[in-house]
């Protein structure tokens, strides 16, 4: 049981770290500001969740579990808010997003 938890925890932590790494690569690789925001979205959501689940499986006391849960909720509530503020600030100050998608099929639907 102990062993199983340890392995599970390790794999969650590893997956979280790899996702963080992927987010970082995307941050460098993507062409403009808005697309880079999407890359950071990976680190904000799934990577953080994986790492927190991994830490939870380290079998700490109930209090630490609760604190991890609060941290998780806090990140899930604040990251879209800050992300939205960032995007809105850029958009309002006239930073034009790079668009390459062919819109002909979507314009009719609204």
């Amino acid at each position: 049981m102990e062993m199983l938890l340890e392995v599970l925890s390790g794999s969650f932590l590893l997956a979280g770290s790899l996702l963080c790494l992927a987010g970082g690569i995307g941050l460098i690789r993507f062409p403009d500001f808005y697309t880079r925001m999407h890359a950071s979205g990976v680190t904000e959501t799934l990577a953080t969740s994986m790492i927190i689940i991994g830490l939870m499986l380290q079998n700490p006391g109930v209090l630490v579990l609760m604190k991890l849960l609060i941290i998780w909720l806090l990140i899930l509530l604040t990251s879209p808010t800050s992300g939205h503020a960032l995007a809105k600030a850029a958009y309002r100050s006239g930073h034009k997003p790079l668009t390459t998608y062919n819109q002909e099929s979507s314009s009719s639907k609204r």
Partner: peptide, 15 residues
């Protein structure tokens, strides 16, 4: 809705 859109990677609610 707007926060859910921002929370899912790949889409960001701008305004």
């Amino acid at each position: 809705l707007a926060n859910s859109i921002t929370l899912t990677p790949g889409t960001v609610a701008v305004e």
